[in-house]
Simulated assay, not measured.
Amino acid sequence: MSNFPIPIGFNGPLINPNADQTLLKAIESINRLKHQPDFIVFTGDLTHTTDDPQERRLRMQAFRKIISNLHVKNIKFLPGEHDASLDKGAAYQEFFGDLHYSFDHKGIHFIALDNVSDPKALLGPAQLDWLKADLAQQHTDAPIVVLTHRPLFDLYPQWDWNTRDGQSALDLLLPFTNVAIFYGHIHQEHIHTTEHIIHYGAKSLIFPLPAPGLAPKRAPIPWKVDQPYAGLGYRNIESYSKQKTYSIDEIAISAGELI
């Protein structure tokens, strides 16, 4: 498995010279977990941006083949702007299905939102209407988990870390008393609250980004030879629906795995 090619598009030797290994390391780490997760979520940017529609599809096909090595086969996908913003999610849907959807699992209602296929970083009226109708089927005390790529709140709009109509989605969610939101895009851990709603940002498997506003521009943090894979990782989330709480375990990528 360690010799499997990773043609998903990223090439940055000063940022992550082992980018062809990081996803494989995460897969092997997950496969070794004593208790395998019920399902796995990829919160977007499955591949790197390309203007070539054929190359975009080849990268998505490669990603699908790579993750077939996971023991867990119940996998949920979200598009990132790298996957979907140039063609409104056309190629993404061919390989990974709907851009937004909902499902129920062990008493929790999950909602996956698409805030990337519109290049203006909008959910849009049609998706907001869908969200309103979906939420109308839930009790106000139902445990709800929302999955997005971009943050729904204005974390740092100067760096494109927001959803322009995200507040409209939050307004629909605020009447519900048990809501958690998990998102990617910012390549780091981050916790924010909108009244009683908690937002959790997550690390990347390719490169970390600086904290909002703590650098002149949004740019990847360079690779540290003495700390390989620093700032990279994934998380294991355990839900306790009766207590309406979540336990989050951040798992770092280890230099000693795989190679």
Rank of each mutant, 00 (worst) to 15 (best):
Y183W: 11
F4V: 07
I67M: 00
P212F: 00
L46Q: 02
L258K: 13
Q243R: 11
V179N: 03
T43G: 12
I15G: 06
W130I: 05
G213K: 00
I186Y: 03
G97S: 05
F182S: 09
F103K: 00
V116K: 08
L122R: 14
S2W: 06
G213S: 02
A230F: 14
D83C: 09
Q138D: 11
H139Q: 13
G107D: 01
N162L: 14
K65Y: 08
Q93K: 14
Q127C: 11
D165Q: 02
I75W: 07
E250K: 11
T194M: 11
S2K: 13
L33I: 08
W161H: 15
A219Y: 14
A112Y: 05
D87C: 07
K76C: 07
L205W: 02
N18L: 15
H100T: 08
G213P: 13
D38Q: 04
I181H: 06
I144R: 00
R59W: 12
A26I: 01
V225H: 05
L78A: 04
V146D: 01
Q243K: 10
P79A: 15
I206S: 13
G97F: 08
K244T: 06
H139A: 14
P119M: 01
P212N: 03
G89N: 01
D20N: 06
D134A: 07
F96D: 01
K88Y: 15
A19M: 03
I67R: 00
R164M: 12
R150D: 11
D38F: 00
L172V: 04
A211C: 02
F63P: 05
G124Q: 05
F103G: 03
L70E: 07
T22Q: 02
I237F: 11
F95L: 07
K34L: 11
D83E: 07
N69H: 14
E28M: 13
V146N: 01
K132G: 09
G124I: 08
K203M: 15
T49E: 12
E257C: 11
Y200T: 14
H199R: 03
P208K: 00
H105C: 05
W161A: 13
S168Y: 07
R235Y: 10
H185A: 14
P222A: 09
I253V: 05
M60V: 10
Q167C: 09
I66R: 00
K34W: 05
P175S: 09
Q127M: 07
A252W: 11
N18Y: 15
D20F: 01
S29T: 09
K25L: 12
K242T: 11
A169N: 08
S239G: 06
P125E: 12
K106A: 10
E189M: 14
F39M: 04
F207G: 01
A136K: 12
N115V: 13
W161K: 02
S168L: 15
N236W: 13
H192A: 15
Y183D: 10
L155W: 11
P37T: 01
